[in-house]
Design a protein around this nucleic acid. Structure first.
Length: 205
DNA sequence: AACATCTTCAACCGCCCGGCT
DNA sequence: GAGCCGGGCGGTTGAAGATGT
């Protein structure tokens, strides 16, 4: 059994918001403030789901929203933040006053991605487009076969977990000289020993 | 002018997380 | 600890407008 839906869908409007709905929502929030989105639609006399109200308010009706075109400075800031945070749009939005996560996400997908590609930069990795990930990122096991099968499975899982972003890549390709792993490096827990092995083998390349 | 294709962005959906009981 | 609930997030969709043929 799944979760119960966030609201009664049969009796809710969907799609674009009308002016009247906007006004009702604004008026209600002016009087009662934000919060308790679930009960808000009923209280405000709106045939909308609470989530929809929240989204409409946050992304469109909030008085502190900037709206309008993104400046060059904002673009660059978004690019920088994205390279640090990835698709954490809410975190990025928190650094851009007056901008919403949805707005930034849309702007990224429509403008910035293209901008980066035209610069020859892969928007996903922030590296040159024709820059192939160094083979030492794809770890090769030198372990005994019977041990490596489980490990390989782990690696496979790892590659299926982009959120882990192991490609923090420690940017070893740019490492000038191999060195002994420091305690801190050793303690970086990338799924245990296998990752250390990969780190170590990467170091050797 | 008419139609096709592309682009933009508001809105929806499903999942996850934290707080509460 | 388990289950429920509400809020929040990121990915995706689709209508509307813009542009090209």
């Amino acid at each position: 059994m799944g979760r119960s839906p966030c609201c009664e869908k049969a009796h809710t409007n969907k799609g674009a918001w009308s002016k009247e709905e906007d006004e009702r929502l604004i008026a209600h929030i002016r009087v009662h403030g934000e919060g308790c989105w679930r009960s808000l639609p009923k209280a405000a006399g709106l045939l909308r789901c609470g989530k929809s109200c929240r989204l409409r308010w946050i992304n469109y009706l909030r008085p502190d929203l900037k709206r309008g075109n993104f400046t060059e400075e904002e673009d660059e800031l978004i690019i920088k933040l994205h390279s640090l945070l990835g698709n954490k749009w809410s975190l990025i939005a928190a650094r851009l006053p007056g901008r919403t996560d949805n707005e930034i996400k849309n702007h990224w997908n429509t403008h910035i991605r293209r901008k980066l590609l035209s610069r020859g930069v892969d928007p996903a990795t922030h590296r040159p487009v024709n820059h192939r990930p160094p083979s030492n990122n794809i770890t090769i096991s030198f372990e005994r076969r019977e041990e490596s099968s489980g490990w390989q499975q782990q690696q496979q899982q790892q590659t299926q977990r982009p959120d882990l972003n192991l490609e923090l890549c420690i940017s070893l390709p740019f490492q000038q000289e191999p060195h002994e792993l420091t305690e801190r490096e050793k303690s970086l827990c990338f799924r245990g020993a296998s990752a250390k092995t990969s780190l170590a083998s990467a170091m050797e390349c």
